[in-house]
Write a protein that binds this DNA or RNA. Sequence first.
DNA 1: CTGATACTTGTCAGATTTGACAATAAATCA
DNA 2: TGATTTATTGTCAAATCTGACAAGTATCAG
Lengths: 192, 192
Amino acid sequence: MGRPSVKAERTEEILNAFERCVARYGVEGTSLERIAEESGLRRSLLRYYIGNRDEMVEALADRFIARTEGYFRELEAELPEENRIGAMIDHWFTPYEPEDSTTLVAEALIASAERYPVVQGKLRDWYDRLVGYFAAAISADYPDVDKDRCWMVALGIVSIFFNHDSMGSLGLPSRYGKASAEAARLLASTLG
Amino acid sequence: MGRPSVKAERTEEILNAFERCVARYGVEGTSLERIAEESGLRRSLLRYYIGNRDEMVEALADRFIARTEGYFRELEAELPEENRIGAMIDHWFTPYEPEDSTTLVAEALIASAERYPVVQGKLRDWYDRLVGYFAAAISADYPDVDKDRCWMVALGIVSIFFNHDSMGSLGLPSRYGKASAEAARLLASTLG
DNA sequence: CTGATACTTGTCAGATTTGACAATAAATCA
DNA sequence: TGATTTATTGTCAAATCTGACAAGTATCAG
């Protein structure tokens, strides 16, 4: 009974707007006022549905983590039997799409992590699992190679991927993107 | 004639304070008020010596670029005859020093680059030269290897270095730092 | 001492941001 | 209809931030 709740939709709208702002201005550079404008809702509603500033940041980080984990599990299920790491690199180093700001958001959240200890811990665990996914794919491709060595190569590939994407805001020529992917593949090839 | 100028010193103090703030709160998250507090000077003095917000950011970027370029030229002069890239990796992947926030500042400036077109261009050129320094060292070590391939490996190493440092704010265990350096060396070793 | 130059303090108005809450509107069901 | 639950609007006060500028102070050369 009572009026039906639109909390789920509104929360999505708000966090979408927040995410767009974060990709452009960073976490600290995004005011609640701006999120309200970007989402087309009153600032009071952000407060009503999510809460104050700290709770907004935490909600964004939680959703971001859950979503990217979802991507990874999906991709994992679609991975071929052989050359898994090659497929992962192909997938993650596809040409830069301006509307996908996943890595920018990740970088922004990580950069502000020291101000939000709870978020910091969650992101640290998230990053650890992320490297773990790559390491698992590599280990499946090279079952005879030492696990630590696979993990080290996975970390290198993830690093190259992150950096490649965050430098996107500098407007670098496309040869950077190609060379990044190539470097990641080269790193993986050292295990064969 | 007239009172002797302390512009050089004051400018340094102000930019030092700005840099400390940027490493902690990002460019957009740092107010002039906070810089004033951090530097122990009145906000009016920031305005007097450097200017408004945009000019402060540009001054910080200019100094940052000049300083890191200086580091690179210095290091270049001290490089050994052989295994230059190994020496560079050893130098740049030394254990994380909390007081050195060079990479954090770089990431923060890059993240906010889209808001400051002039700074964006300067940082793009800076990043390009940075990769160039690594590529030159690699080419010197492996004169028979194709220049493009050397450049690609250099980009990979720089990416790993940047990422390794910016993830420092997550408080990752030390094995991450070691593995990053190892991955960079592994990448370089593919050319031999 | 005097003038010239540079530094420093203090203050203002306007704008923005935030947390808080009262009041009102809308939708559902009994 | 009327009770109930949820959504939405509007408004406040306090704090902060910014650009601008007036007024005063310190140091040096001559």
